[in-house]
Design a protein around this nucleic acid. Sequence first.
DNA 1: CTTGGTAGTTCAGAGTTTCGGAACTAATGT
DNA 2: ACATTAGTTCCGAAACTCTGAACTACCAAG
Lengths: 112, 112
Amino acid sequence: MTKPLVHPAIEDVPVEAILHALSDRHRVALFSQIFHQDNPSSCVTLSCVLDQAIPKSTLSQHMRILREAGLIRGERRGVEMRNTSRHAEVEARYPGLLKAIVSAYAIQLEGK
Amino acid sequence: MTKPLVHPAIEDVPVEAILHALSDRHRVALFSQIFHQDNPSSCVTLSCVLDQAIPKSTLSQHMRILREAGLIRGERRGVEMRNTSRHAEVEARYPGLLKAIVSAYAIQLEGK
DNA sequence: CTTGGTAGTTCAGAGTTTCGGAACTAATGT
DNA sequence: ACATTAGTTCCGAAACTCTGAACTACCAAG
């Protein structure tokens, strides 16, 4: 039996939790990728965008933190996980927040 | 001898550090207050805006984290510290970021 | 059905970070 | 000189994070 993934309502997520989820260099990179991507990304695919390889148990924890902060939705599709951004929902509650963060991250990358 | 406070150039502050600094309920409350205030606020004054009293050693650490993330500037004036927001500098590097976060925090407060 | 591989999760211990009381410093007032 | 106020530093306890090893879930081939 597939155990259910936790996906809080955005109303139940405090801003601090969103900022905390994105306050890690790996997680902000992973989320930016999902944010810009139109079709869902699997975890393995995602880990390729990171500048350094990380263990899969660590990746799994990072994905859980992003999920529990209401930032992404994860659905099991066969053997892999399809991750999509919950951008629209977060935007409805906290307008401009994710865009500002993702843009800031992009600006930071430019200067490297 | 007054020991010097650390104030990094915004260029040297990664977005993650800013998000980390604001990912704590006390720090985001403190920063929002400084952000909205025109004249500098002392630490004691600031701690009054928190919903619960916190020890002053903890407050001191929180202020240091905000300073080292480039979010505020602290100047000793006699016995107390004058804290001001470095909003303009951060805005120049990461447009819209602080406003989006502070607004999101305000929205969250509304719903309480 | 069984074996094998792939994608991701859970567990538990080591390592790191944060919290907060007590002792400290620095400036000012009496 | 002594007391007071505002903030910092130190350091041990508590809370969090990382990651290897073992595990689950699904799918495909034999």
